[in-house]
Design a protein around this nucleic acid. Structure first.
Lengths: 227, 227
DNA sequence: TAGTGGTCTAGACCACTAT
DNA sequence: TAGTGGTCTAGACCACTAG
């Protein structure tokens, strides 16, 4: 294993979970611990600084950075609702193995007919219906997912498998609901909805494709662009 | 001046404008040209790689990266439409100096009553109405803007003044149009719209606050999240 | 004054690419 | 084979911070 990787992962393990502002080992301390040159230690720490895990303060030391609430974290419904101070609840309407149709196959970058997990949920915020979400997951990447008991937060479950999305593209439009959607969302007559399609990737693997329909009177999407 | 900064800026000047894939000077060539150590050159190039300006290919060399069509570029309507292959046209409905109301003042981070430029446009794509946009600009940052003749692209005009937005937050929701909006957008009865509110910053200066209303049947918003 | 990160040197060997 | 970037060494001096 490369030395700078060893040092980097040692430090990462040491500081993950530490409170922001906690000191990381000093460069010279790591030099002695690993018996490497200081440039090697700096290479390791540089990577963690670029990641946003650490920050350096000249003359003081290296510290755990406060997580920059940045674009780089892709949120799912649960996290989104919690950030709004609402309780996220979900009711599974459907969760089964299916064969990918042409659209889902193309979006997931797999072949038509390959196995996908189709998960349809009615999602509530503080007990009132907010959203219907149809998620399609690449089953190859998630063996045993359906059998393992469905989690509340898909993104938490993906994170535990090392597949938390780091990149996503959404397309968003306004529409009127279908009769079924209006029923599930308990929409008043004349209500409108926000439709969101998402393709989410973890590294170079497409893990999720989803279509969500939100009650527009209960949900405003918030998007941050740029650094 | 720090040596690695000298090298970095030399290389930046050399490659900006070069086609993606063009070779940058090799590390050893820069070592000779500047009479510095290779680690110093690597420090300079590392910064440009992190910026996304260069990419390294082991065994081959360092090259101008293809600009990662990234989140970091904030687009306005004109650029957005052009990317869709549509001709962006605008009709100014209103362009005048106003006193900031409480909401606009807070969003622009100025005081109530301060001068703002209010610019209202009907925006077309391939000659059909797509959007009504109300933009409010901080007049302090844009002296003489109203007198200089209104441009087609606000973001181009801001760029020429060194104020192109690098960060923005949008909130997006679905709604039914008002009677005035339906008229301007030539919306059929029962049509729905997408409402977008934007706050855009260039560095630490808030330059634009806008509200846009899009015909949902002619416009789907596309958003890219994460790296 | 002791410790920290920031910068810098002058080499070295490696795996890989292109000719 | 010559050139490239990737990794690594064993030092050095600086400005800054803290006790």
């Amino acid at each position: 294993m490369l030395k700078h990787v060893q040092v980097r992962e040692y430090v990462r393990a040491l500081v993950t979970g530490s409170a922001p502002g906690s000191p990381a080992p000093s460069e010279r301390e790591l030099v002695h611990r690993f018996g490497v040159a200081r440039m090697t230690v700096r290479q390791a720490l540089d990577a963690l600084v670029v990641e946003g895990l650490l920050e350096r303060i000249p003359g003081r030391g290296t510290f755990v950075a406060r997580p920059r609430q940045s674009v780089s974290r892709i949120s799912g419904y649960t996290e989104d609702m919690n950030r709004r101070g609402l309780l996220a609840e979900s009711q599974t309407l459907l969760a089964r193995r299916e064969q990918a149709g042409p659209g889902v196959a193309r979006a997931l970058n797999i072949s038509e007919g390959d196995a996908v997990i189709h998960w349809r949920r009615l999602r509530r915020g503080d007990s009132t219906p907010v959203c219907i979400e149809d998620a399609y997951l690449n089953e190859i990447l998630l063996p045993g997912f359906l059998q393992s008991g469905m989690p509340t937060s898909l993104y938490d479950a993906l994170e535990q498998r090392g597949l938390r999305p780091t990149w996503a593209e959404d397309s968003i439009t306004a529409d009127r609901p279908t009769a079924e959607e209006a029923g599930l969302l308990e929409l008043p007559v004349g209500g409108v909805v926000l439709r969101q399609s998402r393709r989410a990737m973890a590294g170079d693997k497409t893990v999720e494709v989803s279509r969500s329909v939100y009650r527009a009177d209960r949900y405003t999407m918030w998007v941050q662009l740029g650094g």
